[in-house]
Computed example of a mutant assay.
Amino acid sequence: MEIYTQTIPVCQLDENNYFVGMTTADLDPLENNGHYLIPRLCIQVEEPVLKKGFIAQWTGYNWQYIEDHRGETVYSKETGEVVAINEPGILPATVTTMPCPDIYHQWSEKANSWVEKADAAQLRLQNKRRSAGTLSRMQMLSQLEISLDKNKAALVAAAENAMTGIELIKIRNYILETQSFSLDNDNWWKFLTDVLHLDEKQIFDLWNDAIHI
């Protein structure tokens, strides 16, 4: 009488026939002919060879190997944000494994890399202006008088000599009435650069000095 082992190794698959791992099938206690109770989604074939970066899939006849990027960190070429890969297969053409350096870069298919945006310098300046915060009326006017020897009246006079129309009205009202100054205000930035002829470094130096008043 032939003696059968109580269990045999079988390959366990998922719903898409991807190899999950090895498990065992038990000998059928009701049969006496070596019949085993193969668990659901399991097959009695040789275990596939493990290949880094691939997952084995049963075709019904043999194992085929599919690229598997699940768990990898990839990035959207459009936004630079992290994209989750949930299914095996080749990476979508819309993602890359290279992280975007910063918001001033965009993906270039021609270079196959992130390249700096054409308006990166302008965007950096805009963000720098925005992040500078605000200064109180006393801080701003006092620093301008200390640095440029221009009090409120002199600032208004400078505006009237260089500007006209609605632009003059806006900046004059800003100087006379606003309670907080912001470099993110385009009218104020233009006044500092075009009327007072301050360059970017001078403006931010003046701004930082004013913070401590």
Rank of each mutant, 00 (worst) to 15 (best):
Y4M: 02
Q6G: 06
I8W: 07
L13P: 13
N16S: 12
N16I: 00
D26G: 13
L27V: 05
P29Q: 12
H35C: 06
I38M: 11
I38D: 14
E47I: 15
L50S: 14
I55Y: 01
A56F: 05
Q57S: 11
W58G: 03
G60T: 09
Q64H: 05
Q64E: 07
E67K: 15
E67I: 09
R70T: 10
T73I: 15
Y75C: 08
K77A: 08
E87M: 12
E87D: 08
L91H: 01
P99H: 09
P101T: 10
D102W: 07
Y104C: 01
Q106R: 11
W107R: 11
S108T: 10
K110V: 06
A111Q: 15
A111Y: 10
S113M: 06
A120E: 05
R124K: 15
R124T: 00
R124L: 03
R129K: 15
R130I: 00
R130M: 07
T134W: 08
T134H: 14
S142F: 07
L144W: 03
I146P: 04
D149S: 15
D149V: 05
K150D: 00
K152I: 00
A153S: 12
V156G: 04
A157V: 14
A158T: 02
E160M: 12
A162L: 02
M163S: 14
M163N: 13
I171W: 02
I175Y: 01
F181W: 03
D184C: 10
W189S: 12
D194G: 04
H197F: 05
L198F: 06
D199N: 14
L206W: 02
L206A: 02
H212A: 13
